[in-house]
Design a protein around this nucleic acid. Structure first.
Lengths: 137, 137
DNA sequence: AAGCAATATGCAACAGTATTGCAATTTAGA
DNA sequence: TCTAAATTGCAATACTGTTGCATATTGCTT
């Protein structure tokens, strides 16, 4: 729904430009994390730099978060449950990457247990990438 | 010790070239994961492509593994305890990245517990990146 | 609805990471 | 010492991402 998109932009004090509306609408419709390259293919009329800046803006506001899945290109997905904002992102992310179709999705509601670190080390955030086969592969 | 280096190359059926000897010796001496760029600075006489290929060869043989820490450049560290080989790497890696000094190190002897995945998903490997402050920062 | 200041966009240029093809060199073994 | 196979260096190229700046658009004010 385009109204979700508009509300998200309004709530975050962002101007409603063509690029932001289209990109955010698209991101909200995706089941999997998407790369800048996919956005470029989806929206050839927007400049690639504008797409980069749009992603960056959304990330700064806590609307989306990035996923580093080791593929070389950063992927992005919409943040859920309002656990992120411009004041900081959720400090715990679990992502699943299928080794066959290479799709990446967020695994929600999973708590990563305490990891014993060497003396003097203090953890601030944790990022877990689980790789395997998804339900379609 | 250079003899550890030579033994590793021999055990993996790799020719003892200048580049491999120097790079592997260097990698064995490092506490933290290193990037290709660091190797380039350390060994300006070897071509950058050769360094890439050397890293790739070591990785294929299970001598080193890569660490994607989100910095843009892949880092590499020597595999411990012989849990890796050319038949496959250890399926569980925990790495710590200091948010201040940006050094990355392997956290050994930590088992990542079972992560509940949605119906139909099967995990093959897990990669956990913990970020925080190290004992020097 | 016209004007204005702040913001966003498009374009060009550039930086860093990584890969490929190919000719020349080096290695390990006969 | 000779040779085949493996390795290296070089050139070219692709991909990801960033920066500066002029132009266009947005949202607000009048």
């Amino acid at each position: 729904m385009i109204s979700d998109t508009i509300r998200l932009l309004n709530d975050n004090g962002l101007r409603k430009t063509d690029c932001r509306l289209d990109v955010l609408d698209f991101l909200l419709s995706q089941e999997h994390a998407v790369t800048h390259g996919q956005l470029e293919a989806e929206f050839p009329d927007f400049d690639r730099v504008t797409l980069y800046r749009t992603l960056s803006t959304f990330e700064d506001k806590g609307i989306i978060h990035d996923v580093k899945d080791g593929s070389g290109a950063t992927k992005y997905a919409v943040c859920k449950h309002g656990s992120c904002s411009e004041h900081g992102h959720d400090d715990e992310h679990v992502h699943f990457k299928c080794i066959k179709c290479e799709q990446v999705s967020c695994v929600d509601n999973v708590h990563i247990p305490h990891i014993p670190l060497p003396e003097g080390f203090r953890a601030k955030s944790k990022n877990l990438l689980v790789e395997g086969l998804c339900n379609n592969c």
